[in-house]
Amino acid sequence: MNIYFSEKFTNFQSNIKLEFSKKITKNEKIFLKLLFFRIVSDSLFLEKAEIRFEELLSTLEFSSINDFTPFFNTLSEKHILFSTDTQLSGSFGIISSFILYSDYCQIFFTEEFKNCFSLKKNFFSLLEIEKFIFMTDSFSFSFYNNIIKNFKDKKEVSLPVSLVKTYLNANDKYERFFDFEKHILKKAVLDINTFTDFSVEYKKIKECKKATNKIISINFSINKSRQSYKPYDNKIYKMLELIREKISNPEEIYHLFMLYVAKRGYKYVYDNINYAKNSFTEDFEKNLKKALMLNLASNSLKLYVNELKTVKSPIVLFYTLTRKLNKIKRHYPKIEEFMHNFKLRNIDSISYFKNNDSFEFSNEYIRIFVKYYSDKKSIIEIYLPSNIIEKMKLENEI
């Protein structure tokens, strides 16, 4: 392993290509983001990674804990492939093994993946793995690594389309420029502007002497887009003050805000703080982290049902919820498919709740939160898209 800390691996000047050995799924992508924020928030997490099932079920689209074993098995089989234009190539895994307990999982990482976050300079720490994890696909990372890094000091550079494709490792993708721009170039530029400290704009240069007006080159403008963030940022501090009474670990949340501001900007963080404040009455800190990770503020769901009700048993609570869902279903048929997918298949578990048990389901189309209390009013909250609520208002269904 020490070879990766040698000058041979830390002083080379070449372009690096990274890609997953197999296609990564949406759940795997979200899970890797979750790991990243845990690692940078807690340096000990790499050596003792423990995540409760409750957090995974509320973040990933799993129907039950039975999905965890095949999920981790599949992810353990996937590797990150690397290659350079100096004929250096190889691969490394992310997870070496895992253990599932009754209510949490313990994850063991490969040494190579742990070295990606090492403060001591080595081959893996130079890969900037966080950009690879967060960007939409490998083309975006290639754009950053091969164009931004090489030409950032020039601020403006004109490259032939064929060379742009080479830099993005997309030589065999989309012969027509229209398709290449739509499916690769635009997404890559958006990722650069979102997840790095650079702002990129481009202009297409046509072959004007011929009637075809074929795009022959691209002129890129590259600028530093964001200021460097100080350890104490007044804007972030003010955002933290908005929720200080709702959180137990302000230092951790402050650090988390710093990371998201650096990657997504102040507005992204502020919008998701407001979303969490207006949407979650229970488990606020956990749901705030979920909102930041999944950008729940962009869903623009609004509270439609907010019922506080004393019930004699959880069965009554379950039937109250299903009556409301059936009423909504007449105007919002999409709910029907949710009843057969993901965690909504477990909605009948509410009937067997004990005091303080809760149920939560959330995606871009609907959010349901139920909490049972045996000695006080129980809670039912249903959030829906604004257009659906307006539709039901017009039909006098409120």
Rank of each mutant, 00 (worst) to 15 (best):
H183E: 12
Q13N: 13
F62E: 04
N341W: 06
N234P: 00
N341V: 12
E285Y: 00
I247S: 03
F31T: 08
S125D: 00
M239V: 04
L119P: 15
F139P: 00
V161S: 03
I24F: 10
K206W: 03
F143S: 10
M392V: 00
F109R: 01
S362H: 05
M1P: 06
S142A: 14
K230D: 11
K214R: 14
I51A: 01
Y174F: 15
S298I: 13
T322C: 06
I51L: 07
F143K: 15
F109L: 04
L88G: 11
E77D: 09
I24N: 04
D67W: 02
R38Q: 11
T74H: 07
E77L: 08
I39L: 10
S138D: 12
E245Y: 01
S248P: 05
K182N: 15
P333V: 04
Y266P: 05
F53N: 05
T110Q: 11
D103I: 07
I273M: 11
E397W: 09
K267T: 10
N278R: 13
E47T: 06
H340E: 06
S64I: 07
S89W: 00
K329D: 02
R52Q: 09
L163T: 09
D375H: 09
F108E: 07
F92V: 13
L168R: 10
F113A: 02
S43P: 09
L308N: 03
L256Y: 03
N272P: 13
H331Y: 05
F353M: 02
I148V: 12
E7K: 03
L242D: 15
E282P: 01
E337Y: 13
N171D: 00
D375P: 03
F124E: 07
V311G: 12
E381K: 08
K267W: 02
I247Y: 01
L344Y: 03
I215H: 11
F68I: 14
F12R: 00
E55M: 04
S6P: 08
K23C: 07
